[in-house]
Each structure stands twice: as structure tokens, then as C-alpha cells.
Amino acid sequence: MRAARSGDEPGTEPRPKSSNGEARENLEALGTAEVPTSTSRLHTLVIIGQIEGHLQLPSQNKTTKYEHVIPQLIAIEENPDIEGLLVILNTVGGDVEAGLALAEMIAGLSKPTVALVLGGGHSIAVPVAVSAQHTMITATATMTIHPIRMNGLVIGVPQTYEYLDKMQDRVVNFVINHSHVSEAKFRELMFRTGELARDVGTVLVGQDAVACGLVDEVGSVAQALARLTAMVDARPRPARRADPPRAARRRSARGARRGAPAPHTPH
């Protein structure tokens, strides 16, 4: 399927001439009308609205769907031209399973990752935010930390609470393992009373999220991109597949003797 030519649409600008020129050049040089597009070495994943899980949410929700995002993360990991990922969050949370799946995938990438919380990164977006190797938040963005909830049929047996508690432990454990916040502090924020009008928990604004160790620093787009670029540049280049293994081993041994810096590891 192709985008309609802009000229078909009244009141819209025609397509740039350079694009047609490139297409003609490609037709002459390569025998194809497709324009080979250059790609950025830093890719960005924008997580918005509700993080949708196994059930499709009603259409009034803006959603981020895992069936869209998971293949993109695989492509980012697999594509050698992509060297870093900036995750941008403006989300109200959503499904626990889907949120944790995305968080685990981002944490499992071998390439440098930076997350930037803009506007809001609430509830299940908290583990997604801390899953990146470096997490930033804008000064006015907020993160809501509160207990998880259950919807649907609830049976009044102790197992119901134990199940809910296990679900909550999955979230808590991921957050404390991927950020600098302690378990005691995170649970205290989660169960604090008197701050939220209709819930138990805490809203952290910008610097508050940094002060408790959840987020690494306050910043915005420029700082996030600068940080990601620095992480990409500091990363040792992977050996090309064509390199003979023995030569690669010799090079790495030489580097170790010279006191080469250790590769960046996610916190």
C-alpha cells in the first residue's frame, strides 16, 4: 500500500521535487524506483497511552500494543546499523504482563538504552522507565507509584490476596533490581496514605523521582540524546563477522593488557 500523491489532496503541498529526482536517479542507476532511505543510528520507541495487554481495550483508549513493539525491539537488537535506543514514555500504565514484558525486553537489549519520561510514566510504566540503562525525567513529568489492582471476578479466599501480592512483587522486584531505589523506600512510596485523593500511593514529580533513586537524573531531549550518544561512542565496537576469530582474540587480549575500559553494563 502506498501513500497517495499529495497533489491528489486539495489544499496540500506537492511532494518535494528532490524525492522525485532521487527516484529518477535510482531508476537510471539501480533499475528501481524505490528510494533507498538512510536510517538513523539512534532509534526511538515511543510508549503512549495505555500499555495494552492480552485484551484489546475499547477504542477510546490510546494504546501501545505489544505485538507492535516486541518485533520492533527485536529488529533494533538485530540490526547492526542501529546503535542505541531512546525510549520515550508518556503513558498511564496498563497491563502488568505486557508492561513487564516490554521492560524485560528493553533491559535485555545489548545496545545502549536511555529512557525519558515526559508528561507521565505511571504505574506499570515505572518498570518500563527503569528498564533502560539510564533513565531521565523532565522537571514537570510525574510518576505515580501505587498498589496494583485487580478487575474481573474476585473470590474471597486468601489465595486471591496471595496472587495479587505475587503480581505486586514482580513489579517491585523488577524496579529495585533496575534502579537505585531500595525495596523499603519503594514499598513506602507505594503504600503511603494521605497523598492521593482516591488511592494509596505517591506521585513523584521530576526531581522527587531522582531524589528517591528511581530515576537517574532530570533532563530533557537534548540531555537524553547526548547521554545516549556518549554511551554509544563509549561502547566497544563488536568484531565484524568476517574477522578471523584468532585475530579477534589477539586484539582483545592486547586491549586487556593495556587496561582497556570494561564494556558498559546495565545497572
Binding site: Q50, G53, H54, L55, L57, P58, S59, Q60, N61, V92, G93, G94, D95, V96, E97, G99, H122, S123, I124, T144, H146, I148, R149, M150, N151, G152, L164, M167, V171, L196, R198, D199
Partner: peptide
Amino acid sequence: MVLYTPLALEQVLGPPS
């Protein structure tokens, strides 16, 4: 499904518009 969001559940799971 366990939803973890500060939004009221009726807002999220309401009838489709």
C-alpha cells in the same frame, strides 16, 4: 488481566466509543 494504572477502571474498560 491485572491492570496497573491510576485511571479509573470504568474509564479504561468502558463501552467502546
